[in-house]
């Protein structure tokens, strides 16, 4: 958790207080302030309204605002916690927090479940997995025979869909992830542990005095 001994945190009009955000995440106050610098630069890249829209999100991630992709859209939707079509600073920090090395496995497991439950039915369905698999194959220009794709899906559901109802529920997903921990690898960005030294380009001098524990 962010640890703070301070009397003077910055305020960002229209955005959540960095001390509050630090108290709810693994980021320290100065790291939240550094993330605000990053957020500012992304949120003004197309429309300077203090919010990140989908175009700005894609531009920041891929340096290409036209790069439509199934996964990129889904990640944006998950960052857009308030379902407003834009990401505000609080959404941005809390969503990135899930990728922090110190975030709990439960949070990471839940995020991946929602990522793959594209239709928000409460289940990861075979058709969704197939759609994502095909998207991945197209992206990487890998070619697999249709039969091979079905075999992979059969095997995946045999392993994960324990009750055999043709879809993967949340508990089934948790159990599957415990048996296959590498599935959460995409959910940890190691450099979030110390963003202020790893990415000095968007760090400024914090007004907050912090003592790490």
């Amino acid at each position: 958790m962010g640890c703070l001994h301070s009397t003077a945190a910055r305020e960002y009009p229209g955005h959540e207080n960095p001390v509050k955000l630090a108290s709810e995440t693994a980021f320290s106050v100065s790291e939240v302030e550094a993330l605000y610098e990053l957020f500012k630069s992304i949120s003004c890249s197309v429309v300077d309204d203090g919010l990140i829209n989908k175009e700005e999100f894609q531009l920041a991630l891929f340096k290409n605002r036209k790069k439509e992709n199934l996964f990129a859209n889904r990640i944006f939707d998950l960052f857009d916690v308030k379902r407003k079509g834009v990401i505000d600073f609080g959404d941005f920090v809390r969503s990135l927090n899930v990728f922090h090395p110190n975030a709990s496995l439960e949070e990471k497991t839940d995020f991946t479940f929602r990522l793959y439950d594209m239709d928000c039915t409460g289940y990861i369905e075979r058709q969704e997995v197939k759609q994502m698999l095909i998207a991945l194959l197209c992206e990487s220009e890998m070619k697999l025979a249709d039969d091979t794709i079905e075999v992979i899906l059969d095997q995946t559901f045999e392993d994960a869909d324990v009750d055999g109802d043709g879809k993967i529920g949340k508990t089934e997903w948790s159990d599957f992830v415990i048996k296959n921990p590498s599935l959460l690898k995409i959910m940890t960005l190691p450099y979030l542990r110390d963003i202020t030294t790893t990415f000095p380009s968007f760090v400024f001098n914090s007004e907050v005095d912090e003592i790490a524990t």
Binding site: L38, S41, I42, A60, L61, F62, K63, N69, L70, F71, A72, I75, L96, F99, L115, Y116, V129, M132, L133, A135, L136, L137, E139, S140, V151, I152, L153, Q155, T156, D159, A160, I178, K179, N180, P181, S182, L183, K185, I186, L189, Y191, I195, T198, F199, S201, F202
Partner: peptide, 29 residues
Amino acid sequence: KGSDSPTIINAFQLIGMSSFLDLSGFFEQ
């Protein structure tokens, strides 16, 4: 800590290879 189940590669391992799930780009402003 367990290692992954010794089955053939599962669909989610493949899906996790998507570059669109890598958020590193955010920090390369």
